[in-house]
Design a binder for these strands. Structure first.
Lengths: 112, 112
DNA sequence: AATTTGCGTAACCGAATGGTTATGCATATA
DNA sequence: TATATGCATAACCATTCGGTTACGCAAATT
């Protein structure tokens, strides 16, 4: 199964988990208190988030402390910021886009 | 079924479609030439992308011209840029994050 | 030692996903 | 008018997703 950041943030529950953990790390039970779905359901989502490196677990006795580790968000930000020109009106973003477009245009000239 | 931008960009094929359409709008067949999967498969993905507003279809005779309309990317960018502090070292991003944290911290003080 | 707590995981389920092939309908071309 | 082209869509399929309940284990508490 695919385990990448794009997939990870596709689910609203996982985004909520990230929002909560980014603000304060906490163990699984207190995390689950914020949701109506069951604790095992949260446990599963946490597993997905750890598998793609967005959440780190630190065991302290019987408690599993979860914390967010959002370095990988750079992947998403990197992909999406190419298109900033579409939702804001920074002119330099437009410049970057066109420049980049001209560059990859050359590569696109493949002969079939 | 859920149809939002986060979901739409979760699939690598759809991201490739967006990349292609952002650089030059084109009809479905020429778009499908870039992929190994069948034309109906691309057609389905395009449908998903139009349903969440990321792609616009303009019929010209029997051809369907597809173009990217990436304003909705702002949603993703807006969510993710809160966490910029995690993948770059802009100090103002850290400032923004902590400021925002302090603010929502107040709201989080719910009595159970 | 017995019990409670925090958690992972297995087994199961319905629905969604992402692909396929087959068909048919407009539009363009011969 | 007959044929070719561009496309949507239906029907189907295997796999994944996101949840559930039931269970068990290790650590803490009594």
């Amino acid at each position: 199964m695919r385990r990448d950041v794009f997939q990870a943030i596709a689910d609203p529950t996982r985004r909520d988990i990230i929002d909560l953990l980014a603000r304060n790390p906490q163990n699984l039970n207190s995390l689950a208190d914020n949701f109506t779905i069951s604790r095992p359901a949260i446990s599963k989502q946490i597993k997905i988030l750890t598998q793609c490196g967005l959440v780190t677990i630190t065991r302290q006795g019987r408690e599993h402390y979860c914390s967010a580790n959002l370095k990988k968000f750079g992947e998403v930000a990197g992909w999406i910021e190419k298109y900033q020109v579409f939702w804001n009106n920074k002119l330099d973003a437009l410049g970057d886009f066109l420049e980049n477009e001209a560059e990859t245009e050359k590569l696109a000239n493949k002969t079939p």
